[in-house]
């Protein structure tokens, strides 16, 4: 049997800065930084596959390049080099989606992807109602029928446990946990096969965190959406992911089944991460 991945990422590289003769290609760095020219190598040759219905965890310390990678995947920022393939879409089979036109990228974003940002300010218009935020995404995905959109928004907000009487309210009045739940509802509104979640629970109280994690697990179980879940917190990854990738200084240093990463970590950095969890 050969199972086909939904998303293939190959040698994704993102650098901030022009590089110089000393660091060209990522040599002579201090962590991810060239002391000579100041170029930051945020992601270096990141490659992995995402399979249908799975939650893939990505863990790594602050600055390891997790958000930079997610922003490249979601076309929020331009990659320096590398490729992503969405082979399940016949018209895109074998094509590097980073090389497509901005219009085609927008279509992929609207129809294939959902994103939950580390900072809700990036994902939500704080002065729109929650329903309005979701409608905006639905319109981008091609919906035009106002009545339908309102009904879809309501059922999504209900699904993420936002009480009916608060749906018309602006998310800026909401708690952090509620804002993340509105972001999740918005990200799900176009029925995306692929969902990116960047530190969804960071900064939330433990009980609120648990509530959001249960919601994500439920979405995977009920809707079978494939997800990339990024967190610097191994406990979050342990709860959610079947497979886990460990990043350090912009590179993947280890990957494996999540319980194997936890019980038999190979790399010195992963061991340090696991021991600090116990």
């Amino acid at each position: 049997m050969h199972e086909a991945p939904l998303l293939r990422v190959r040698d994704l590289t993102k650098q901030f800065g022009e590089a110089c003769s000393s660091c060209d290609g990522g040599e002579n760095l201090e962590k991810n930084y060239c002391p000579t020219c100041g170029t930051v190598y945020a992601c270096q040759n990141i490659s992995f596959d995402l399979y249908p219905g799975e939650i893939l965890g990505i863990v790594g310390e602050s600055g390891s390049g997790k958000s930079s990678m997610m922003q490249c995947l979601y076309f929020d920022s331009e990659v320096t080099s590398g490729a992503v393939y969405l082979d399940h879409i016949p018209a895109l089979a074998g094509k590097n989606v980073f090389a497509l036109s901005s219009q085609q990228k927008r279509a992929i974003r609207n129809q294939q992807y959902g994103m939950v940002y580390q900072n809700p300010i990036r994902g939500l218009k704080m002065d729109f109602s929650s329903v309005g935020n979701i409608a905006e995404k639905l319109i981008a995905a091609g919906n035009r029928h106002v009545g339908d959109m309102e009904a879809v928004s309501k059922s999504l907000l209900e699904h993420v446990h936002i009480p009916l009487f608060r749906m018309k309210e602006e998310p800026r009045n909401f708690s952090g946990g509620m804002q993340q739940r509105v972001q999740i509802a918005k990200a799900l509104s176009n029925n995306p096969p692929i969902l990116f979640l960047d530190e969804v629970t960071t900064g939330l109280d433990l009980s609120v965190q648990a509530n959001v994690l249960d919601l994500i697990k439920g979405i995977q179980r009920d809707l079978g959406i494939s997800m990339i879940v990024v967190s610097h917190d191994l406990a979050v990854i342990r709860m959610l992911a079947d497979r886990t990738i460990v990043m350090l200084n912009g590179s993947i240093i280890e990957d494996g089944l999540t319980d194997q990463i936890l019980e038999d970590p190979q790399h010195a950095y992963t061991q340090q991460l696991v021991y600090s969890l116990l």
């Binding site: 494996g256 089944l257 319980d259 194997q260 019980e263 038999d264 190979q266």
Partner: peptide, 9 residues
């Protein structure tokens, strides 16, 4: 046992 189940490599 854990290596059979691949909790260990």
């Amino acid at each position: 046992l854990k290596s059979i189940y691949r909790s260990y490599l």
